[in-house]
Computed example of a mutant assay.
Amino acid sequence: MIGILGIVIIFAMVFGGYLAAGGKMTIILKSLPFEMMMIGGAAIGAFLISNDKGGIKHTLQDLGKVFKGVKWKPEDYRELLCLLFALIRIAKQSPVDLEQHIEDPQSSALFSKYPKIQADKEAVALICDTLRSASMNYDDPHQVEEVLEKRMEANLHHALHSSHALQTMADGLPALGIVAAVLGVIKTMGSIDQPPEVLGKLIGGALVGTFLGVFLAYGLVGPFAAKVKAVVEEDSHFYQLIREVLVANLHNHAASICIEVGRQNTPAHYRPDFADLEEALKSIKQEAA
């Protein structure tokens, strides 16, 4: 909703201000289809050249993040802490019972209580791979933390590809606008024998190309890239929370301490309230009993 509101404000303020100052939309509307074909078509072509099929698909999917916002909400962080608490308790009390959950998480009754987390392949893989490694005596906290850090850095780098692709397009749009404007000037020079009122319209049409390139770059595509980047970086906190809790577990802290370490390392705007989380953990203990 905020993304849509932002787009509406951009168009309203730019074109509303233009009209309020006495500008006329006729020349813009007349030139817009041709200028958009040149600038937009060239930008799309350059995007296709500089990205592979996977990158193109990834970028198109990530455009939805501009309007949907972050994937992980505050209640998801609370559920993640509850899931990790239950898994760590099982690992400490009965490692054999843990295997049924980490070897087949999609069929696990425990994971099934948290369907949104269960549906996220990377979150499930981080949890299961780390707990499985610990059960195989690969439990040096510092080594595991380093492995998880590198894994999450690689995942974040991949997730930010669409933001970089959009920003590259935004950086090129002003130059493409100049290209369109130059072509418009060439067209104008071919009609130099026409009266001033005709030349004025031709020059105005050429300048629409410059305007359109800058407007698309800084009014739409650039902000889209920034929003996608912000959303991806915000969602990465969810996976960092998994690392903090599981590394704390490798230090042989009690399950409740591991969860508190994770809660304290959760960004303030997502951090569960201590009392609410404690109540949720009590329910898990009662179910286990």
Rank of each mutant, 00 (worst) to 15 (best):
I178A: 04
S108F: 03
D171L: 13
P105E: 15
L156D: 07
G3K: 09
I178F: 02
N155A: 13
F67I: 07
H237E: 01
N249G: 12
I39Y: 01
F211W: 07
C258Y: 01
H142V: 15
I192Y: 14
I257R: 13
L183P: 01
I259A: 01
L199P: 01
F67K: 08
E260C: 04
K68W: 07
V96I: 10
G222N: 09
V14D: 15
W72P: 02
A175S: 11
T26V: 15
E146A: 14
G54Q: 14
M169G: 04
R89N: 03
L131V: 09
F211D: 08
L281T: 08
L83G: 00
V198C: 08
L250P: 00
L173G: 03
M189E: 00
V185N: 03
G177K: 03
I7Y: 06
I102T: 09
E260L: 03
K24V: 12
A289H: 15
G213E: 02
P74S: 08
K282F: 00
P95D: 00
K57F: 11
Y138D: 14
M136I: 02
I102E: 07
Y270V: 00
A248K: 02
L29E: 13
L84V: 10
L212C: 06
M36C: 12
H251Q: 11
V144A: 13
G213A: 09
K121T: 12
S112G: 02
G184D: 02
G40Y: 07
E146W: 09
H237C: 01
D104C: 06
D76K: 06
F11S: 12
H157M: 11
T188S: 05
E279L: 11
L29R: 13
E79F: 03
C128V: 01
H142R: 14
A21S: 15
Y138N: 14
A109Y: 06
L63D: 01
V96N: 15
V245Q: 05
A21Q: 15
P74D: 05
D273I: 09
G54E: 15
A134F: 07
G6T: 04
Y138R: 02
L199A: 03
F215S: 03
